[in-house]
């Protein structure tokens, strides 16, 4: 069910996506492609125990696109059956963006002091792992939380202990967590099992279940993407037959929207159980002990 959101081919028009490619030229991609990248990024973010680099351009482009679509949808005839379908599709896209940001939000919140420390130590030529607005939030949260502990506890302790030690608040990602992932390019990976080093062949299209740590670099390099057990096997999809470079190859692997991408990996049920279900590494909700 591929619905063009704006009712015609023209409104899904190209979005300028200034991405630093080898040739240093901005690549023009369609909004469908942007959505797809965002969907993959969202799945990766949801399933990975650590915070991944932000999809700056994809997020901004998609938010802009949502705005356009929201405007368009109001001009549609309310009695037309398709109007409701357009609206639903818009809801789904919004869900992906919101869920992506929320997933990141809870990771930032949970690992706030760790991320803040890292951000302070980051050298100027290193890319930040946070969106700009996330960093502002992080700074405010860390400051406020530290103040809270100083005021309520630390100032009441004997003098030698009146130090706010950031190391006591460190929360590290669970690199040992197991993840499902789909292989996009043939690879080999070395995994340590019971003190033995095994070399595992990863073939394109395979679905594997493995500890996160040994495959983290493959994820960063775009050779795999994290998935759920349910996500359908990759299939070439029809939006852009001109898929040529590696970036496009990633896009060419489409999780069908109907099932894979839009049903979140961990199904949320109604309050209050949804809270419990979302515990865990990639959880997108308040974290419980």
């Amino acid at each position: 069910m591929d619905i063009s959101l704006n009712g015609g081919d023209d409104q899904g028009g190209p979005v300028d996506n200034e991405e630093d490619d080898d040739d240093d030229e901005p690549i023009v991609v369609t909004s469908a492609e942007v959505l797809q990248r965002l969907e993959h990024g969202w799945m990766n973010e949801k399933m990975s125990p650590e915070l991944l680099p932000p999809l700056e351009q994809e997020k901004d482009a998609m938010l802009g696109q949502i705005k356009v679509m929201e405007r368009n949808v109001t001009t549609l005839d309310k009695r037309d059956v398709r109007t409701d379908i357009h609206k639903l599709e818009l809801e789904r896209i919004k869900f992906v963006v919101v869920s992506y940001m929320r997933t990141r939000f809870f990771k930032v919140q949970r690992m706030s002091f760790t991320l803040y420390e890292a951000e302070m130590k980051r050298s100027r030529n290193q890319e930040s792992i946070l969106f700009k607005e996330e960093f502002t939030f992080l700074k405010n949260l860390v400051t406020r939380t530290a103040d809270y502990f100083k005021a309520t506890l630390i100032s009441k302790m004997p003098p030698v202990l009146q130090k706010f030690e950031i190391k006591k608040f460190r929360v590290l990602p669970q690199f040992d967590a197991f993840v499902f992932f789909r292989v996009l390019q043939n690879q080999t990976v070395q995994v340590e099992v019971n003190d033995e080093i095994l070399t595992i062949e990863l073939e394109e299209g395979d679905l594997h279940f493995m500890r996160y740590e040994p495959i983290a670099h493959l994820l960063a390099g775009g050779a795999i993407h994290l998935s759920t057990l349910k996500a359908n096997p990759p299939s070439r999809h029809h939006h852009h037959p001109h898929a040529a470079n590696d970036d496009d190859k990633v896009n060419a692997l489409k999780i069908r929207e109907e099932q894979g991408a839009l049903s979140s990996p961990q199904k949320i049920s109604h309050h209050p159980q949804w809270l419990r279900k979302l515990e865990g590494t990639g959880g997108e909700c308040p974290h419980l002990i």
Binding site: L63, G64, E133, T136
Partner: peptide
Amino acid sequence: DIGVDGDF
């Protein structure tokens, strides 16, 4: 703040 830079 989310997306303010991108006019959102």
